[in-house]
Simulated scan of single mutants.
Amino acid sequence: MRRVPLPLVLAAGVLLLLTSCGSSRADDGDEGRMPGAPTGVTAQAGSATTVHVMWNAVPDGTGIRSYEVYRGGTKAVEVPGAERMVDVIGLRPSTAYAFTVRARDSAGRLGPPSRAVRARTPARVAADRSAPARPGTLTGHPVGSRAVQLAWGASRDDRGVVSYDIAQGGTRIHSVGGAQTATVVTGLRPGTRYVFTVRARDAAGNLSPASAALRLTTPGTDDGRATSPTGFTAATHRADGAYYLDLAWDPPEAGGVITEYAIRLDGSTATSLEWGGDPPRGRARYSFYLGRTAGEEHRVRLRARLPDGTWGGWSAERTVVTGR
Rank of each mutant, 00 (worst) to 15 (best):
A213F: 05
I64Y: 01
G73L: 10
P142L: 12
A147C: 10
G231A: 10
K75A: 13
P112L: 02
T192F: 10
V148M: 12
R118E: 10
V58H: 01
T293R: 08
V88E: 01
R146M: 10
S20R: 05
V300P: 04
D157T: 03
Y194T: 05
R109D: 15
L110T: 15
D308T: 08
V9R: 13
E317D: 01
V148N: 12
L265K: 11
R146Y: 06
A262M: 06
V320A: 07
Y164G: 05
G220W: 06
W311T: 03
S130P: 01
G295P: 01
P252T: 08
R92N: 13
Y261Q: 11
V148Q: 10
A119N: 14
V14H: 13
V195P: 02
G13E: 14
P132A: 02
V77A: 13
P80L: 13
V185L: 15
T19W: 01
A242P: 08
G40K: 02
G63I: 00
A200S: 09
C21W: 04
A226V: 09
L18T: 14
P190H: 04
A284Y: 11
V300I: 07
Q149C: 07
P35Q: 00
S155Y: 08
G291K: 08
T230Y: 02
R134G: 04
P7H: 05
A127H: 15
G224K: 01
L188N: 09
A200R: 03
A11H: 13
V148S: 11
V4H: 12
L8F: 13
T310Y: 10
Q149E: 15
T236E: 14
V41F: 02
G90Y: 01
D278Y: 10
S23P: 01
A76M: 13
G90L: 06
G140C: 13
D105C: 07
A234N: 14
P251E: 04
S175N: 04
E260G: 10
D27A: 08
P132C: 04
R124Q: 12
G277I: 03
